[in-house]
Computed example of a mutant assay.
Amino acid sequence: MTIARDIMHAGATCVGIDQTAAEAARMMADLDVGSLPICGNDDKLKGMVTDRDLVLKVMAAGKNPAECSVSELSNGQLVYAKADDTVDTVISTLTAHQIRRLPIIDEGTLVGMIAISDLARHLDDRRLGELVEAVSQN
């Protein structure tokens, strides 16, 4: 049985909870990613920030990215999977929350990320199509 640990990208670069939206945007550009996990000073996962958050909650809202903390951008709902969760559990979580990327934790510590592109290498075309359709409802 395939589990999250088998398909995740090990390791993930966090943006610190006190860092700014501008710093998060630079990190995303440097890493060529569309989202970053937000971690506290205790290195525990506190949330996620996406490129969409930066556009809608900072730029479109007229906020100064250099003064807006990433902690202001997280929606407060922490969504993740455990490293030993099955792929079915990962898919259910992505679908239920209509998200495309999922942080993976092990014993409370962030150990990796799973994106739909990671699942694409492990799912048949039908199941992948269903997942993409389910997370693209809004």
Rank of each mutant, 00 (worst) to 15 (best):
T50I: 07
T50W: 03
T50S: 13
V90Q: 13
H9K: 11
I3G: 07
G47D: 03
Y80F: 14
Q137M: 15
L78N: 05
A83H: 14
G108L: 03
N138I: 08
E72H: 06
L31Q: 14
C14L: 00
E23T: 13
S92T: 11
H9C: 12
A60H: 06
L119Y: 04
V58R: 10
C68L: 12
D30I: 14
I7Q: 02
M28N: 12
L73F: 02
V15A: 08
D32Q: 11
A10K: 13
T20L: 00
G40W: 09
A12Y: 07
H122C: 06
S136G: 15
G47M: 04
V70I: 10
A4K: 00
S69M: 13
M48L: 12
D88T: 13
D118H: 03
D18T: 15
L94S: 09
D84C: 01
K44S: 10
G62S: 09
D88K: 14
I104S: 02
T86D: 10
K44P: 03
V33N: 06
M113E: 01
V132L: 07
K82T: 13
D32T: 12
A115C: 04
V49H: 00
K82F: 06
H97Q: 15
R126I: 12
D42V: 12
P37T: 07
A12W: 06
N75W: 02
L78Y: 03
S117P: 01
D51H: 11
L45I: 01
I7D: 01
K46H: 04
A21D: 05
A24D: 12
S117W: 06
P65E: 11
E133A: 13
